[in-house]
Every structure is written in structure tokens, then in C-alpha cells.
């Protein structure tokens, strides 16, 4: 049984691409380390190194269906971070994401929230127009003290960065609590702003 040093929860409506996001991240890793368990894409644990130390990150996928909404509390209990996903092309999913976030804020104050707009490639390719502007989402994220990122599981855009950022932010404080010397900094993102609010 693989233990994990900290857990990250994926939240979001159905079909926003939570599982794809995780798959993308895990599969990138699979290519170099194919010993991971592939039968299910609901849970994944992978080692991630940050600041010269290795940690095991457990990623929990959740069922996004409305009917299981009541149970989500069980999932994000004790989670260090929650990635709240929404579909960039579907406004409804963004509204749902807001719901999740308020829930989270009420129940797990320590949990860091990462707002993640998925399917960036669809928007970039012009197949669908974005349902909401980048600025609006970013503004919302700032308002709740969350990080906002736009990712594409198809191209792998920002996927690795997102998880790395989570690792950096979640692990270090607990490890270096004594020093109090570590400051969180915004990650250097070129195209997509990745904001961090403390």
C-alpha cells in the first residue's frame, strides 16, 4: 500500500477534464517510469522532487457528477491542495467550480485552491470561443486567494507546471516550518498568468 506525503484533490464538474489532467500528468511520468499502476485513473501517487527532496504526492480524482456532490467533503478532507477544474468553454462549469470553492473554504481552510481552466487547446485552436475571459477568471481567483492556471491536457500545456507548483507550495512550508525562511513566489509563467495569492 503506497502511502503519500500529501494529497491533492481534483474537483470539478463532469467532463471538464479532471481525469485527463491527471492522466496527462501521470502518463508523462509513465514514459520514463512505466512501473506505475495504470488500471485506474482515479488515484495516482507519484514522487515529486522539490528543493532537492522527494515527496510522494497522492492525487485523488473525484466523481464530478451532481449526485455525488454531497460526498465531496469526504474527499477533500485533509487535502493539502485542491485543483478545482472548469471547462474554459463552458460557463456552467465555472459556476460549479465556484460552488466547490465556497464549499472548500467552509470546510477545509488549510487546503490550498488551484483554479484550473481546462481545454485551453480548444480555445487556442479557435474551435470554441472561451466562455469567460481570462481576466475574469483570474480576478475571481485572486478574490478567493487561489492560483489560476489554464491548462491543456491534450498538449500538456501547464500540466507539469501546475503539479510542480502545488508540490512547491504545499510541501515546503510544512518541511521548513522551523526556518520560516521560505517565501512563496509566483511561478514564472510566460503565456498564462499563474497568480498566487497568499
Amino acid at each position: 500500500m503506497s502511502g503519500a506525503d500529501f494529497k491533492v484533490v481534483l474537483l470539478g464538474s463532469e467532463d471538464v477534464g479532471k481525469t485527463s489532467l491527471m492522466k496527462r500528468y501521470i502518463q508523462d511520468r509513465f514514459q520514463c517510469r512505466p512501473h506505475q499502476n495504470t488500471i485506474g485513473a482515479a488515484f495516482a501517487s507519484r514522487t515529486i522532487s522539490t528543493r532537492g527532496r522527494q515527496f510522494v504526492m497522492g492525487i485523488w480524482d473525484t466523481a464530478g457528477s451532481e449526485r455525488y456532490y454531497a460526498m465531496s467533503q469526504l474527499y477533500y478532507r485533509d487535502a493539502k491542495a485542491a485543483i478545482v477544474c472548469f471547462d474554459l468553454t463552458e460557463l456552467v462549469t465555472f459556476d460549479r467550480a465556484k460552488q466547490w470553492i465556497t464549499e472548500l473554504r467552509n470546510h477545509e481552510e488549510d487546503c490550498k485552491i488551484y483554479l484550473c481552466g481546462t481545454k485551453k487547446d480548444v480555445v487556442d485552436d479557435g474551435i470554441k470561443a472561451p466562455a469567460l475571459s481570462h481576466e475574469k477568471a483570474l480576478q475571481y481567483a485572486k478574490g478567493i486567494g487561489a492560483v489560476y492556471m489554464e491548462t491543456s491536457s491534450k498538449t500538456g500545456l501547464n500540466v507539469g507546471e501546475l503539479f510542480q507548483l502545488i508540490a512547491d507550495e504545499c510541501v515546503l512550508p510544512s518541511i521548513h516550518n522551523r526556518d520560516d525562511s521560505i517565501k512563496l513566489r509566483p511561478s514564472p509563467n510566460k503565456n498564462n498568468a499563474c497568480c498566487l495569492a497568499s
Binding site: 503519500a4 488515484f43 497522492g58 485523488w60 460526498m71 474527499y75 485533509d78
Partner: peptide, 15 residues
């Protein structure tokens, strides 16, 4: 145990 795979499945069972 509760952060690992077992924890995840157990949480699902609770759900």
C-alpha cells in the same frame, strides 16, 4: 495510510 491509495479507496467506500 489515509493519504495513500488505501485511503483513497477507503474514502470512496465511505462515499
Amino acid at each position: 495510510l489515509m493519504t495513500g491509495e488505501g485511503g483513497y479507496y477507503f474514502t470512496n467506500l465511505c462515499c
